[in-house]
Design a protein around this nucleic acid. Structure first.
Lengths: 105, 105
DNA sequence: TCCATATTTCCATGATTATGGAAATATGGA
DNA sequence: TCCATATTTCCATAATCATGGAAATATGGA
């Protein structure tokens, strides 16, 4: 994973509304939630929500799936796992951490 | 962990220079690196680096330790682990994911 | 076809953030 | 004490981001 991609992903999560949306989708599971449902839960204007969802999707953290007139967004678990791995990559120069000297990841 | 704290932490990482600094400190291990060393590695102006280090420290992701004229910054591994746990909290409503239907975290 | 609902795009506005020069502060050594 | 080096603070400037109203687009049902 590239540094820039990680920044995009982190920036997508580094905003209260988007972080709340993401965590909501994480708990919702693979089926996801329709945009309107998310809006009901958060109480943000449609245009604002759409903007944030686009941001999350652009970062690859969520996917959209159309079903009739509804668009369901769901969390992309692998994107998150990739990001987490990147953040702790080569921790402590790769030197393993002892159980008692747990200073590490 | 509060939503707002997570946003602060994510925002601290959602910037190329800061993310690079953080990852450098992760590989450096518990002893950390002096500010000058970090500056050498990244080639950013002292004022800019100081600004970014303050941001990371404020988010709790790094700690500063003074040693003579030098200030050593090191990564706070537990802060990251707390953040990661928050991001995947209550994944899929707590329903465990089967090994073959690995859609989850 | 016409209508109601769902979602997005366009756009202007206000708010936040990143950058680095210059000056200030802190520390240890001569 | 005086100096050199390390780091931070102050400040102005430029750039990026969030918000939501209004209009546009898409979909299915009557």
């Amino acid at each position: 994973m590239e540094n820039k991609d990680a920044v995009v992903r982190l920036a997508a999560l580094a905003q209260e509304t988007r972080l709340t949306v993401y965590r909501l989708l994480v708990t919702a599971g693979p089926e996801g939630l329709a945009v309107g449902r998310i809006g009901d839960a958060l109480g943000v204007a449609p245009a604002t929500l759409s903007f944030h969802l686009k941001e999350l999707a652009h970062a690859g953290l969520v996917s959209a799936r159309q079903d009739g007139r509804f668009i369901y967004y769901s969390a992309n678990y692998t994107a998150m796992n990739t990001l987490l791995a990147f953040l702790t990559d080569n921790c402590c120069g790769g030197v393993p951490c002892g159980v008692d000297t747990r200073h590490c990841c």
